[in-house]
């Protein structure tokens, strides 16, 4: 009797807690879902319609937009360019931020100052700092070419060449995002137990061996995080392209995400933008899954 009574009381307490929890959580979750889950659903449908968003109703056109996407080389080229340009940005950022983290992982009174300085480019929005690059890169009277001329070198016509525009896009991208990535790496480096290195030293392991057997395994989780979030980020990168090269020279640095933005927000061609978003989203998720699979497989082998 006593036992049963007690159980009942526990149950009601649990129920009460659950009711309370839902009362707090549900309104917030519903509100958040309206603004983020709903667009996800709309987005999946949008690709099958012809719609200009501001007047008239969406018209169901079936697979027409997807046929346009895969039918001509234009969109496919943009998708491929999004992948390799994004890939280059990501690789450059990961490698350089790791080196920077190693450089910052030194005890010195100036370390705090250096850490702050490398982070500062990130606290200004991309739009705010891109003007400097445009002013410097003007092929005729930009700061950089004038400097080259004063050294007696030939000026480089940056905007003629895909190589240089991609290069500057990467420089701008890395300049903005190397700080945060380096700080994440640094957090990882510092969380590795220092006694492991001591022990290795006692065992007579060389610096290279220490890095190979202690540092790299210790950073596996961090590197997975940086790679995965970075991957998702660069697959949607276009503000940098819009601000630095505008897709020039002659569309050679244009990426799919920029096209989606122009289709949707400038030309109001929502159907095509929706279809392209769906494809790009799926490709991103697919790549992220493959990357995740490879990383976790590597984990098991160790």
């Amino acid at each position: 009797m006593v036992m049963a009574g007690r159980q009942e009381r526990v149950l009601t307490r649990k129920q009460r807690q659950s009711r309370r929890a839902y009362a707090v959580i549900l309104p917030f979750f519903l509100y958040i879902a309206i603004w983020s889950l709903l667009p996800l659903v709309i987005g999946l449908l949008l690709g099958f319609t012809d719609f200009n968003a501001l007047n008239g109703l969406p018209k169901w056109v079936g697979l027409k937009n997807f046929k346009t996407f895969f039918g001509s080389r234009d969109y496919i080229d943009l998708l491929i360019r999004q992948m390799w340009m994004g890939g280059l940005c990501l690789v450059a950022n990961v490698v350089l931020s790791f080196l920077l983290a190693l450089a910052l992982n030194v005890k010195h009174p100036l370390r705090g100052f250096f850490r702050t300085s490398v982070y500062i480019p990130n606290i200004a929005a991309a739009a705010i700092t891109s003007g400097v690059f445009i002013a410097l890169l003007n092929p005729f009277n930009g700061g950089l070419n004038m400097f080259f001329k004063s050294l007696g070198m030939d000026p480089i016509i940056w905007n003629y060449s895909q190589f240089w525009m991609v290069f500057w896009i990467i420089v701008f991208f890395v300049w903005r995002s190397v700080g945060p990535a380096a700080i994440i790496w640094l957090g990882g480096l510092q969380s590795i137990d220092a006694s492991l290195y001591e022990a290795a030293k006692v065992d007579g392991a060389s610096k290279v061996q220490q890095v190979k057997y202690i540092t790299i395994p210790g950073l596996r989780f961090i590197s997975a995080y940086i790679l995965l979030t970075g991957l998702i980020g660069v697959m949607q990168m276009f503000d940098v392209v819009m601000l630095i090269s505008h897709g020039n020279p002659y569309g050679k640095t244009d990426v799919l995400m920029y096209r989606i933005y122009r289709d949707g927000v400038i030309s109001f061609n929502m159907g095509m933008a929706g279809a392209a978003s769906t494809v790009l989203g799926l490709v991103t998720v697919l790549i992220a899954f493959v990357a995740f699979f490879i990383i976790s497989k590597g984990d098991n082998n160790e």
């Binding site: 003007n138 092929p139 005729f140 905007n159 003629y160 020039n248």
Partner: peptide, 17 residues
Amino acid sequence: FPAGLGNNSDEGPLWSQ
């Protein structure tokens, strides 16, 4: 044209030259 002047996005330098 001097290289890069005739097809720059910024027209300004051409006219001032």
